[in-house]
């Protein structure tokens, strides 16, 4: 099985470590720390989600092409939480707190809602598919599903952020500390 926790970790010499520490004074080492990498990538994911979710402001073309690009930070988010995804089904049937159980179910629900928004969005595309010379018959059903799923995603995301709020606050403090 593939696991992030089984990744080989580079253990440098004392000199390497000192150099790393000095470097840390000037730049963040977020790429070397899983939690910090997740934090930065999640921030990018949130910003890109907000940008692609406002077609009235950005225009339909930017909304559709941006949504296609949005697959990249969304996939990165899933890859960086690989261990969580892998163990979530096991945790669900084990003896965990109600909050943890709700968190797992909620994350699955967000994933499915996001997929529904993607699928319905592609099926009502008026800019992306025509540009690729693909003709589709746009159905009112998919327009409604896209509008409703995209609107539902926002409060669902709000609850998702609240459930992970302690982690967000902790990482925000850690990231703002210089040389950490």
């Amino acid at each position: 099985m593939i696991s992030l926790s089984s990744m080989p970790v580079h253990i440098g010499t004392k000199k390497d470590n000192l150099n790393e520490q000095n470097k840390g004074k000037f730049m963040s080492d977020w790429k070397q720390n899983l939690h910090k990498t997740r934090y930065v990538m999640d921030a990018i994911l949130l910003i890109s989600f907000m940008l692609v979710s406002a077609p009235q402001a950005t225009g339909i073309a930017v909304h559709e092409w941006g949504s296609l690009l949005f697959i990249i930070p969304f996939s990165i988010h899933l890859l960086l939480h690989w261990d969580w995804i892998k163990n979530s089904a096991k945790h669900l049937i084990s003896n965990i707190s109600a909050r943890q159980r709700f968190n797992i179910i909620w994350d699955y629900a967000i994933y499915l809602m996001m997929l529904l928004a993607f699928v319905s969005g592609f099926l009502i595309s008026i800019s992306l598919f025509p540009a690729l010379n693909i003709e589709i018959d746009i159905q009112d059903f998919w327009s409604k599903v896209h509008h409703d799923s995209a609107t539902m995603l926002m409060p669902m995301l709000g609850i998702h952020l609240a459930l992970n709020w302690n982690w967000i606050v902790k990482l925000s403090k850690s990231m703002s500390q210089k040389g950490d």
């Binding site: 907000m50 979710s53 406002a54 077609p55 009235q56 402001a57 609107t151 926002m154 409060p155 669902m156 995301l157 709000g158 609850i159 952020l161 609240a162 709020w165």
Partner: peptide, 14 residues
């Protein structure tokens, strides 16, 4: 306005 709508829809449930 679309961004304010998003902030409210995300922020209030949060």
């Amino acid at each position: 306005l679309p961004f304010i709508k998003e902030i409210i829809l995300i922020g209030v449930p949060l």
